[in-house]
């Protein structure tokens, strides 16, 4: 049944433990000094995994109707459009500041 999935304590505590480990991991990795841009990619990768865990198991998307997941993905996709098309300008300007 969609929407009324009852999570077990095991799942909830397991997910929380995983989030905790990932937090420690991301702080730890920070002190290793991975060269750019891989440091950002690692940090964001860990953040995405954490966010995914929260969305799937705390927010129950894993068991929920598909449409709610679509909504989340659509929101992120349009955020991607905002960033992507803006970068198309800001990264390709001859001068960072337009001439006034």
């Amino acid at each position: 049944m969609s929407g009324h999935h009852i999570s077990t304590d095991k799942t909830l505590l397991g997910v929380a433990a995983a989030l905790l480990m990932l937090t420690i991991l991301t702080v730890g990795v920070n002190y290793i000094h991975i060269p750019a841009p891989w440091n950002i990619i690692t940090a964001m990768g860990i953040a995405v995994v954490k966010a995914g865990l929260v969305a799937l198991f705390f927010m129950n998307l894993y068991w929920d109707e598909r449409f709610n997941s679509i909504l989340l993905v659509a929101g992120l996709a349009f955020f991607g459009l905002l960033v992507g098309l803006t970068l198309l300008d800001t990264l390709f300007r001859a001068n960072v500041m337009p001439a006034f």
């Binding site: 969609s2 929407g3 009324h4 929920d64 109707e65 449409f67 709610n68 909504l71 989340l72 659509a74 929101g75 992120l76 349009f78 955020f79 905002l82 960033v83 803006t86």
Partner: peptide, 25 residues
């Protein structure tokens, strides 16, 4: 009623994502 409320909240969360999205951008 339950499913409707939940979908409404998810749609609202989309607006939240895009509101923070401006700052993240």
């Amino acid at each position: 009623q339950f499913q409707t409320a939940k979908m409404g909240m998810w749609i609202f969360l989309v607006t939240e994502i895009l509101m923070f999205g401006g700052l993240f951008a």
